[in-house]
Every structure is written in C-alpha cells, then in structure tokens.
C-alpha cells in the first residue's frame, strides 16, 4: 500500500489538474460576503428575543420557562426535579452550574448526583434526568448551544429521557448570524472547542414520516431561562 502522503498528493493533483483550465486567478479569491439576511436588529436577551426563543422551542416540542432571575430559577428547578424524587440526576459540573450552587440545591432534594463519564456509563444510562447549563441560545430556531470543555461533557444532556438546561437570558441571541458576529467581536473561536447545537428533544420521522419525539436522545427538553 502506498503511504498516506501519496494519496494526499494524488487527490490534490487531480483537483489542480481538473481546475487548471478554468482557474484564472492564482491567488485565493478574497471572500467578501454581504449576508442575507442581515443580522437581526433585536437586542440580545431582550424580552422580544426571549419570547421568540420560547415560542420556537415549544414549536419543536421543547418546554421553556422564563424565570425572574437566579432566585426563582432555584425554585423552578426544584419543582422540575421533584418529579424525579428518589432517582439519580446526571450533572455536568460546569463552572456555571457550580456558580449557581446547583449541587447544594440538589442535595436538598432526594436526588442522587452522578457525574457521567465514559467509565460509569452503565449506571449513568439509568438516570431519568440530566442537568446542564448552556453557553448560549439562538431564538429564531429555539436552539441551545452546548460547549464541551473540561468537565463539561456531553452525556448529561444526552443519556437520560429528560434534559433540563439552564440558560442565561443575557446569552440568548436573536439569530445565528448575530450569535456568530458577537462571537467574532468577542474573539471567541467557535472552532476551538467541541460544540453541540440542540434544537428540541431528539426525534425521528423515519417510519412513514410520523414524527416521534424521543429517539436516541432525550424525549423531553426543558429550558429554564434566568
């Protein structure tokens, strides 16, 4: 077998030969793009944006509660978790979850905390609910942005039937383009860290196009805004 380097050369050569007759510039074209549509004029985290987020998430089968702030978030979360009393909750110990002191809140309930890893998955897979924070929200599609770095893994949002996600109002952007622009302005490299955009509970329509919520991932997605 030829070494991998040579396959690379074969492919690149095929491309270059193929394009040689058409390509008249020998430097990459300057990419300048007027985006259609322009990013939304709505203000990030404004009531209008929050309500749009809620509406769009509900349209795809998600649940969304807009709380008054961190205090009422705790109450709302307690209410949600009560349904699962006596069982385990998967928790991503991300910085925001720690800042909000969620561990403490859960300790006051009868739930047991599991930090899921590739090692304890068998046990983790039995938990009915998982709790994570989200890094951002995108209103016009009802999308939550999950970033996987350090201890913030993927499994809490993925293995259980119910995913509860905590989302700061100030991080809800009107649309993808605004999100992208803001990340660029803040010099945040979207290519640096593994990232998942989640829009609603998992679903499939593979049998006769009948939409069924709850395929391989969560069946319910509950977003708590604070």
């Amino acid at each position: 077998m030829k070494n991998p380097e040579s396959h690379r050369e074969v492919v690149l050569k095929a491309i270059q030969n193929g394009l040689s007759s058409t390509r008249h510039t020998d430097h990459p074209q300057e990419f300048f793009m007027d985006l259609i549509p322009a990013p939304s004029p709505q203000r990030i985290g404004s009531d209008e944006v929050l309500h749009n987020f809620q509406k769009m998430l509900e349209l795809v089968g998600g649940e969304c509660y807009i709380t008054a702030g961190e205090q009422s978030l705790h109450a709302a979360l307690q209410e949600v978790l009560q349904t699962f009393a006596g069982s385990a909750v998967l928790l991503s110990p991300d910085p925001e979850i720690q800042r909000l002191n969620i561990d403490n809140l859960i300790l006051q309930t009868s739930l047991r905390i599991i930090h899921p890893t590739q090692q304890n998955m068998e046990e983790a897979a039995l938990a009915p609910v998982g709790l994570t924070s989200a890094s951002a929200g995108i209103a016009d599609t009802g999308t939550v942005v999950l970033v996987h770095i350090g201890e913030t893994g993927r499994l809490s949002a993925l293995l259980p039937e119910v995913h509860v996600v905590l989302l700061k109002k100030a991080t809800i952007y009107p649309d993808k383009l605004t999100f992208l622009q803001q990340m660029k302005l803040a010099r945040i490299d979207l290519g640096a860290t593994p990232m998942t955009w989640v829009t609603g509970p998992s679903s499939t329509a593979d049998i006769e196009k009948v939409l069924v919520r709850g395929a391989h991932g969560p069946r319910r997605l509950i977003a708590l805004l604070y």
Binding site: V60, H115, P116, T117, Q118, H148, I149, G150, E151, G153, R154, L155, L190, G191, A192, T193, P194, M195, T196, W197, V198, T199, G200, P201, S202, S203, G217
Partner: peptide, 16 residues
C-alpha cells in the same frame, strides 16, 4: 435537532 461541531478530540481529563 442537533448540529455537532467536531472541533477537536477530547483530552484526558474530559469525561466523554
């Protein structure tokens, strides 16, 4: 339902 950005492999300390 999801868009998955495979930005890098995970490191030793990461859970998954």
């Amino acid at each position: 339902g999801s868009v998955l950005y495979f930005n890098r492999p995970s490191t030793g300390g990461e859970p998954d």
